[in-house]
Design a protein around this nucleic acid. Structure first.
Lengths: 213, 213
DNA sequence: TAGATTGTTAATCGATTAACAATC
DNA sequence: TAGATTGTTAATCGATTAACAATC
């Protein structure tokens, strides 16, 4: 099956997991077909927008009927790269790191955190949710040996750049960053930030506007 | 000091914490003034964009010199509502909940998680990072008594809507949602989603495009 | 057939970027 | 004064939304 390689906007990519979640719920309920109109209503989106998002995945619908739930589910998963597992290493076994190591749903999204690394000798050697915490010094060789493509960064802000540099040097192709630090990465490497402070900023700004009108 | 209540785009709101972090670093280094040109270079943004973002906070600069680091820091914090603490309750003392309870930096961003709630009696009674886990049934009365405005939702997807409904019924004005579920909320309540799966979708889609060109 | 929905093209809207006068 | 930077207005770009023919 040929991989669909259309380039779409970040906005579209962020909506697709929402649709996927709805589709999985419907599939569990035995629903077989679904229209973009229905999806749009569920999320309060514009139907045309949903249609364009769906189009990007390569799935083709039927006029008057819509899309097969099973078919669309597969196409979205394939498009997001969630139909085969990606192995990942996690750097920084602090609170956020532990939470991610214990997050079982990642499996469903094709993410498999294989091991954790930390430079604190007190943390090394432990097992967190069955995953070993190893010294950072062992990371580069293991990235190469295991062909790891994804590095998850959950270290404090001041160590984030060093962690990222080490991961990229070792051969990692994509960084999922949780540290609140601006990171420099070379051309060709993917950086995706999952900083909670940005989301919090939107929340608290809106809240102050509501509370003090 | 009058609260600045300009409405700005979500994009601007998400960039402001990045600037703030840089400003705090500069302030620690003793730097007193900063130009938008400099900030833009640091993040690879357009200088005009930075100038517009900064303008939204109400801070006024000086031609040829730029902005005072201290003044701009204050104005960004004020604009984001980070200069006075917001008390929050957390529902769902699972892995993600624990991580948030242990995240010390939130204090710096004006977020104070006061207590956690869970419906699992086995989790109730424990203290996580010094914060008590209480039965969900006690939440509504405490929201009212303590005038809690923010509810953080870290329950599994299937319980998210119920948790949100209960929080809003009790009087919470803003929901910070970590559950991968589509949520319905009434007019006037703020919903901010911090779903990791959306960020992961962007990452894995980009990665598959890089790996299979 | 009638009508709901897809697929697609055009219009709108808002954010980003460019241009430039004012200022220190 | 010269020149870097602010503040602001205009142009561009891209995403969202509207319109509508094709289809089952």
């Amino acid at each position: 099956m040929a991989q669909h390689t259309v380039v779409v906007s970040r906005s579209t990519l962020k909506r697709l997991p929402l649709y996927l979640h709805l589709l999985e719920k419907l599939q569990a309920e035995g629903v077989e077909t679904i229209s973009c109109t229905y999806i749009a209503k569920e999320f309060d989106f514009d139907p045309t927008q949903v249609r364009k998002d769906v189009e990007a995945t390569g799935e083709v619908g039927t006029a008057r009927i819509g899309f097969r739930v099973a078919g669309l589910t597969d196409k979205i998963k394939e498009f997001l790269g969630w139909n085969n597992a990606h192995d990942a290493f996690l750097i920084g076994a602090g609170n956020m790191g532990k939470a991610l190591l214990g997050y079982k749903d990642f499996e469903k999204y094709g993410l498999n955190i294989v091991a954790a690394f930390d430079k604190d000798p007190k943390k090394v050697g432990a097992k967190i949710f069955g995953k070993e915490v190893m010294p950072l010094s062992k990371m580069p060789a293991l990235v190469k040996r295991m062909h790891i493509n994804i590095g998850i960064v959950t270290v404090p802000a001041e160590h984030a750049q060093a962690a990222v540099d080490a991961l990229i040097d070792a051969g990692v192709k994509a960084i999922w960053n949780f540290a609140p630090a601006p990171l420099k990465i070379p051309e060709g490497v993917i950086l995706e930030n999952a900083r909670l402070t940005q989301s919090l900023a939107v929340l608290t700004n809106n809240l102050t506007r509501v509370l003090k009108p």
